[in-house]
């Protein structure tokens, strides 16, 4: 359960942002979580709601967007939207040219996308 320590880092960023923007309150937090990030959205959610108590985001809603796996092929340059990794025909290779020189471009991210704040 590493979600708690990720949520702790998230709140460090939230506090920084709140200071920079002069927020009195943070009312909504939207995060992007890659399906290959190892983060379980449900666990993240419960970690978030227990951590937020007493912070500037005390009553904040949490919105989680799960981002899909994407690859880029270094051989033919194509973008590949991958099948579900648990599906039997998942392959870490380019379906267009067969090259295995592919790089994961999306699916591992754990990002704070945006905040909704109150300034007065």
């Amino acid at each position: 359960m590493h979600e708690m320590s990720i949520v702790a880092d998230l709140f460090t960023i939230i506090e920084e942002q709140a200071q920079q923007t002069g927020a009195k309150k943070v009312t909504k937090v939207k995060v992007l979580i890659g399906e290959l990030s190892g983060v379980v959205p449900e666990l993240f959610r419960s970690a978030f709601h227990s951590y937020k108590k007493g912070t500037i985001a005390d009553k904040a809603k949490l919105e989680i967007k799960v981002t899909r796996i994407k690859f880029k092929c270094h051989n033919c340059g194509k973008e590949i939207k991958s099948k579900d990794i648990s599906s039997p025909d998942f392959s870490y290779a380019c379906p267009f040219c067969g090259s295995k020189e592919v790089e994961l471009t999306s699916g591992r991210e754990i990002y704070l996308e945006k905040l909704e704040i109150e300034t007065s």
Binding site: D9, E109, E113, T119
Partner: peptide
Amino acid sequence: EKSKKEVLVLEDILGSN
């Protein structure tokens, strides 16, 4: 109804690690 504002952050949460 307070004045609400949306702030785009796009920051890696694991960035400090």
